[in-house]
Amino acid sequence: MSDERQQRLRQRLEALEEMPTIPVVLVPLLRYLEQPLDILDLQQVVDLISQDKSLAAQCLHMANSPLYGRWTPVDNIRNAVIALGMQRMRDIAVSCSVLTLMPRGRTSVDPIVFWEHSLGCALVCRQFAQKIGFPDPAKAYLAGLLHDIGVVAELCVVPQEFRVAFDLARSQGIPLHEAEATTLGLTHCDSGKIVAEKWHLTDDLVAVAGCHHDPHTAQMHRDLVALVSLSDLLCRMSGLGYGYAEECQVNFAEEPGFALLLEECPALRTFDWARFTFELEAYMEEVHHLVRLLYRVSQ
C-alpha cells in the first residue's frame, strides 16, 4: 500500500465522520458511577438508565443472564440495580452502549461476530483478573470490552478496505491485525488509538486499544494491556474470535504479555490455563445467546 493511500485512510479514521456517537446517557451515567459507592443514590442511577428505553431494555436482558451472576429474573431496572449492584450495572450499561456503536444495515462483515468477541473478551478479562489477583477486575472488564474499538471504526469508516483485510485473514487463518497491516498499512490498534483519544477515554483504555497486540509498546499501564492481550488471544484460540480459526499454536507462557503481567500478578506463574480454557466453553454459549438477543432488541 502506498504511503499516500495509507495517509488518506488515517485521515478518514481521524475524521470519524461515519462513526456513531456514544449514547448521550452513558457519559453522565459513567461519571456518576465513578463516585464512591456510599454516596450514590440508587434512584438517580435508575433514572439515568431508564432515560434511554432501548438501553434500559438491553440492560434488563443482560442483567438476567447468568454471565452477570443472576439466576432469578429481574423485570425492572430498579430491581436489577439492587440485585446486581452499582458496579455490575455500570458494566452492563457500558456493554449495551458499545453495542449501539455497531454499524446498522448491510455491512461488509457481520458486526455481531465482533461484538461477541468484545463481550466475551470483557468477561474473560474480568474472570482472569479475579483469578490471578489483578487489582482492578472492573477496569479489566471495561478494557476487554473496548479493546477492539478500532475494528468498529474500520467497519464504519473504511468498510470496503476492511473487508479486504478480513477476507485475507479468514482465508489464510492468520490474525486480523497481520492481514490489516498487509492490506491497509495500519491495524485496528492504530485506528483504536485514534478513536480512543478522540473520545477522550482514559489513558489506560487508550493504551489497551492501541497496544493490545504488542503490549511491550505500551508506555504505561502495561499490566492491563498485557492482561487484555492474553485474554484476547485466549478468546481467539477458543472459538470466541472473529468467526474463523487462526491456524496457529500458542504457548501462553511464552507470549510477550505473560512476562509483563507476571511482574504484577505472581499467581500467574502457577495459573491453570487448561481449566480456565475449559471454563470458557460455558461462556461461549451464553455470549452467543446474549449478543443475538441484544442485537434484536437494538434493531
Binding site: 435508575v46 433514572d47 438508565i49 434500559a56 431494555a57 447468568p66 423485570d75 425492572n76 432488541v297
Partner: peptide, 18 residues
C-alpha cells in the same frame, strides 16, 4: 419511580444456579 419492563422475553427453560 421509573421502571422499564423487559420488552422481549425469550421462551426458554428457567435457569437455576448450580
Amino acid at each position: 419511580m421509573t421502571t422499564t419492563a423487559v420488552s422481549q422475553r425469550t421462551p426458554e427453560a428457567p435457569r437455576r444456579p448450580p
